[in-house]
Design a protein around this nucleic acid. Structure first.
Lengths: 231, 231
DNA sequence: AGGGCTTCCTGTCGATCTGACAAAAAGCTA
DNA sequence: TAGCTTTTTGTCAGATCGACAGGAAGCCCT
C-alpha cells in the first residue's frame, strides 16, 4: 500500500510553574504580569517555551525557575500536562506543569526576568474576581491539591521551611496548606513518632515568645510511614 | 530592541497506554509487536502520534485504546509525561502516558489494528531478559506503581472486575496488583466498613466451589475513606 | 444420608493509633 | 513573684488493625 508520507503534527511545548511558599502563615503563589501578546497585562504562572529542540523538559522548568524567580535550588516535581486544543490562541501549545516549593523568602523576588513578579496569596489568586491567563486557574488548583496530598504522604513540608525549624513552624506549614487548625500536642506526638521525618539539630533553641523550642532539620526519609492524615 | 523573530521549537506529541487487566489471578499488560522502523519487532506499549493538530490528547488515547485493543469504555487516567531528548531516534518526541484498566476479557484481543497484540504478565514484561521499545519499561513500572497507589485510595479495583463481583474476587484484584496475600476475613471486614465502596446487588449468589458468595457492584464513591492499606 | 472438603461470613482479642483533653516546663514582661 | 506565652510530656477513651476461632452453606464421594 503506497501510503502518502503522512507526517504527524508538531506542537509547541511549554512549561508552567506553580511555585508555592509561605508568607505570614498563608500559602502564596508566584504570579507574573504578562508582557506580551496573548493575555497582555493579565496575571499568569511563570513559564515559557522550550528554548531549543534538545532541551530537557525539567531543565527548561529549572531554567524558568531561575530566570523568572531567581530560585535555583528548590523542590521541583512534575504536576500534569495541559494540552487542550483551544487553550492558547497562538496555536497548539502543550504545557507541562511543575510544582515547586520554596522556603519563605525576604523580598518578593530579586533579579527577575519577567516584568512584575509578585507573591500572591492563593486565596486571592483563586478568588472569583481574579482572572488568570490561559487555563492557569485550573493548573493552580491542581498544584495546590497536589501539595496538600504530598504533605500527607511525603516530607514535602520541610521544603517550605528553612534548613532548621521548630515543630510549631512545621505545624504552621500544614495548617496553611491544608487550611485547617491542628492540635499542637497531637501534632508534636505524630511528627516525633514518624521515624526519619525530622531529626534533632543539636540542643540549640530559639526564642520568639514563650518557652524556647528545639530545632530540627529534615530527616532522611521522603515517604512518610505512617502518613500524616488531615482531618 | 529588534529581536529576530525567534520561533520556539516544535515537537512530536505521542500517547502511550499502560493497559492493565487480570488474567488467571495475575496482573497482565497489553503489549504490541512493533511493525515499523524504530525498534521493529520489539515489544512496546500501544500508542501513537496525534492524528492531527486539533485532536485532544485524551481523545487520542481513547482512539488508540479502541484501535489497538478494541476497548471502548474502560477507566482511563493520565499517568505522566516522558520527553527526554534522546528517547526516540526519529527526533524530539514527547509522550503523554495514560493508565487504562480493563476487566478480565475472554480472548486476547479482537479486531485490533496493530500486528500482534497480546496480554503479557507484568512479571514477564519486567523480567530482566525482556526488552521493551523506547523507555516503555520505565513507563510500565510507573503505571503499575500508580495502579498500586490508586488501589489504596480510590475504588479503582472495581474497574478490574465485571459489573457484579464477589468480595473474594475483589480481594484477588488487590492480591494480584499488590503482589501480596491478604486475610479474607480482615479484607471482608475492611471492605464492608468503607461506606460507598461496594453495594450489595440483590440477594443473588454464585456457585464456584464452596459456600455461595454474595454479589456486589461498584458503589457511588471514588475516593476511599478510610483508605485500603497495603501491608 | 452422612462425612469430608471448600469457601463465605461473623466474632473475639490484644496491640496500636487517634483525638481531646490536663498539666508541667521554660522562657519573657510587668 | 505573678501572669502570660509557647513548648513538651502525659493520660485516657474510642477507633482501627492484624491474627485467629468457629459457625454457615454449598459441593463431592462413598
Amino acid at each position: 500500500m503506497p501510503d502518502p508520507p503522512w507526517q504527524p503534527p508538531r506542537v509547541l511545548l511549554a512549561v508552567d510553574l506553580v511555585i508555592l511558599t509561605l508568607r505570614e502563615a498563608r500559602l502564596h503563589v508566584l504570579l507574573v504580569e504578562r508582557g506580551i501578546d496573548p493575555f497582555l497585562g493579565a496575571l499568569a504562572l511563570p513559564g515559557g517555551f522550550l528554548c531549543d529542540e534538545h532541551e530537557d523538559i525539567e531543565a527548561a522548568a529549572r531554567r524558568e525557575l531561575s530566570e523568572e524567580a531567581g530560585l535555583p535550588d528548590v523542590h521541583l516535581e512534575p504536576l500534569a500536562v495541559y494540552g487542550e486544543p483551544g487553550r492558547d490562541p497562538r496555536g497548539r501549545v502543550v504545557s507541562v506543569a511543575y510544582l515547586a516549593i520554596a522556603p519563605r523568602l525576604p523580598e518578593p523576588v530579586a533579579g527577575t526576568d519577567a516584568a512584575g513578579a509578585c507573591w500572591t496569596s492563593v486565596e486571592h489568586a483563586l478568588a472569583p474576581g481574579t482572572k488568570l491567563a490561559f487555563d492557569h486557574r485550573r493548573i493552580l488548583i491542581d498544584g495546590v491539591e497536589r501539595a496538600r496530598i504530598q504533605l500527607e504522604h511525603t516530607a514535602l513540608a520541610t521544603s517550605f521551611c528553612a534548613e532548621t525549624f521548630t515543630i510549631s513552624e512545621l505545624q504552621q506549614v500544614y495548617e496553611a496548606v491544608w487550611g485547617v487548625r491542628l492540635d499542637p500536642r497531637n501534632f508534636y506526638r505524630k511528627v516525633q513518632g514518624t521515624r526519619g521525618f525530622i531529626v534533632a539539630d543539636g540542643p540549640m533553641r530559639k526564642t520568639p515568645n514563650g518557652r524556647p523550642a528545639r530545632l530540627f532539620r529534615a530527616g532522611p526519609v521522603h515517604v512518610l510511614n505512617p502518613p500524616m492524615t488531615r482531618p
